[in-house]
Structures are given as C-alpha cells and as structure tokens.
Amino acid sequence: MSRQLRIIFPGAVYHIGARGYERSFIFKDDKEKQHFLDILTRASKKYDFTIHAYAIMGNHYHILAETSSPNLSQVMHYINMRYGKYYNIRHKRKGYVFERRYSAFVIQKGEAVKRQVQYIHMNPIRAKIESILGTYKWTSHNRYVGMDKESPAKCDYVLSLFGEDTKTATAAYEEYMCKSKVLNKVRVETGMYGVGIIGDKSFVKNVKLLFVNKKLSEEINTRSEIKKIFDYKEIIRAVCEFYQITEVLLTAKKGAWNVYKKVLIYLLSADGGLSGAEIGRMLEIHQSSVSKAISRMEKQIKAIKWKAEEIDKIRIKYTVLKEMLIK
C-alpha cells in the first residue's frame, strides 16, 4: 500500500496530528508535555514554522501551523524524531513511539482556520479532561486570551480574523469558542489521492488544479510528497516582478552571474523541474555552471535567513499561489 502523499507549497497552512503507537499514552506527565512544547518552539525558530494553535493530549497532539517554505517534512521529522528519542530514553524502551506517519490537512486561510483553532482548543473538553475552557494548560487557548506569555503560538493572524483591535478580537474569539454547534469534528474534504483539503469548493478545486500534472499518476507509488512544477515563464515573471527588472536584463547572456540570475536558475530547477541542461540552453550557460549556481544558492538559503525569506517572497508571487494565499 502506498504512503499518503503530502501537498507541499510555501505559505500553506496545515492541521497536523499524530497519535501514540497502538493508541498508547505518549505524554504521561507535565514534564513530557513541556518537553514536546520545547521541541515545537525550537522547530518554529529553526524552520521559520509558524504555530497558530496546538493541543497536547495524553496519546496524541494537534498542531495548526503555517510553513513559509515548502519544508513540512523536514519540520515534522525534526519534531517527531526528537520527541521519540527523548521518550524512549526516559522510559528505557525501544521501538515506535508514534503509531504512523503524521496526518496533515491543507487548510484554507480565513473561516476554515477559525474552525480548526476551535476544534483544537476544544479537544480537552471533548475528552472530558476539563469542563471549563482554559483550565487544561497544554493547549494554546490561554495564549489567545493573554494568560500564557510563554506559549510558542502566534495568535496575531487568527485574532485578526475576529476583529481589528486586540480587545475586540479577543472578546469575539472567546464568544466563538463557546459556540457548541461547532464542537464536533470538522468536516474534511477529501482531495486527490486521499489528501485532506479543508476549505470552500473554490479552494479545494484550486489546490487540486495546482498539483495536477501527468507525472503524479505515473509516480503515485513511489512519491511521498506532491510539489508543484511551475511553468518557467511564471518563474521568470515572478523574479522580474520581485527585483523590479526586465526579462531582457534577467535572461541576457551578458552579466550571466548577476545575483538575480542565480536566483532564477535555482527556482527553475527547484520549482520548474528543469534539468541543468535545459536551464543552460535557455540561458546560454554551460551545464556545469548551472550546477554550481544551484549548489551555491542551496548553501546560501540554508545559511542565510534573509536569503531564504527572499526566495519565499518570490514564490508567493507565482500567480496561482497569490490567488490562493492572499486573503
């Protein structure tokens, strides 16, 4: 049986969850819950991974998060591997800690995000761990109402969906959380290949269209992620728009190694799926030079935070992502 595919793109919001092996308790006391929270905090800083909400229960967790880069797999590997190692050492055991791969549903920004936050924060009430929202301290709810300054959750975006100023937004959030009619599990739209997509019909349709290409059906049994292959013209347009330069200057043979062209070469490879030979022919550059440029850019992106952020800002300018993500 093939593994469930992941939909990966910059700026995506995910509802992520994982459960203990054979549904066993993997967060047995406050010390373990705090250690997991510390790992989340480190992951958010290391990978520029925004945590909007979370709930750490006895045998599972929920996280609502946003990735600025298409790096969900690396983030979750970091989180689950480190906690699994800690748990096994502490309990002097070996073997699996989590039951299976984490689940990750793609969430539309806006109203769908509000519903996910509510579902996550209401977990302790549904599990009858608490009867009054906020008495269970291992969710991000108290961060939203100003009672937990240490939480790694960033609530600015979600609160902005409830009101323009903090006081109004917080009051509206608390009222929304008390609406009993949406306490039940949220409805999940099943996307292609069993991937969960939560949002309105237009969003679900756009996500499906975004990731449709012939190679997917051919590689369905060997791929674990779906990464969009963008048209090279779209990538060139986005780079030109970001740097405020013309396509003629960007692709001209003269001045082949200006900084903009290095970025273009990297994106044509990473997001356009073009080979070194194809990029070389397009820009009239030797294939070995293309390979060196890609390698240098990859190192810069890993080592220099502002360079990684710059690449992500260019990616958001791809037309189809702009239409989906700018809300």
Rank of each mutant, 00 (worst) to 15 (best):
K313R: 13
E247W: 01
E234V: 06
Q34A: 04
D200C: 03
S288K: 11
A43S: 14
I132Q: 08
G276L: 01
E298N: 05
G255R: 11
V13H: 08
P10C: 02
R143Q: 13
K46D: 08
S140Q: 05
V239E: 08
L268I: 00
Y86I: 00
W257R: 14
I301G: 12
V113A: 11
Y119L: 01
N59G: 01
I314M: 10
A277G: 03
A12E: 04
W257S: 10
H15A: 03
Q287P: 05
H60Q: 01
N142F: 03
K201D: 15
S44N: 09
N80D: 06
D48G: 02
L250Q: 12
I285T: 09
S289F: 07
Y78H: 14
C155H: 12
K302W: 10
V106A: 07
K94P: 00
W306T: 12
G17S: 11
G146P: 04
S24Q: 15
A252Q: 09
K215A: 10
K31S: 12
E298D: 08
S73W: 04
I125R: 04
S269K: 14
E99R: 01
E189K: 09
Y266C: 03
Y176S: 04
L64R: 03
E99H: 06
Q34H: 02
S2L: 09
R3W: 07
M147N: 07
T139D: 07
E225A: 03
S275T: 15
F211N: 09
A18Y: 05
S269L: 03
F162W: 11
L209R: 13
K167T: 10
S24N: 13
I301D: 14
H286T: 09
A55V: 04
K45Y: 12
R281L: 09
K208C: 10
T222M: 13
C178F: 01
N142V: 01
D38G: 06
T170Q: 15
M147Y: 06
F98N: 01
S291I: 05
I236F: 05
A277Q: 08
R143S: 12
G199A: 09
W138T: 00
G84L: 00
K31I: 08
A308I: 01
M324L: 15
V117Y: 07
V106R: 03
A18D: 12
F211V: 07
F105T: 10
K208F: 01
H91C: 00
R93V: 00
K46G: 08
Q34T: 03
I229Y: 08
I279C: 11
F36A: 02
G134D: 05
D165V: 03
Q4L: 12
T222I: 14
R315L: 06
A277W: 02
G196W: 04
C155I: 11
A293P: 08
A104R: 00
M1I: 12
E234H: 06
V207F: 01
D231E: 09
H62P: 06
I107C: 02
T251G: 03
T190N: 15
Q287V: 11
L250S: 11
R23M: 00
N71D: 15
Y232N: 14
K128E: 07
A104D: 00
H121Y: 00
C155M: 13
D48T: 07
E219A: 04
V158G: 09
I63W: 04
I132S: 10
Y232S: 14
L161G: 05
Y260G: 10
L159R: 05
G17L: 06
M147Q: 12
S202E: 15
Y47R: 07
E130I: 04
M1E: 13
T41G: 01
N206Q: 13
E189I: 02
Q287I: 07
K228C: 11
K313P: 03
R237A: 12
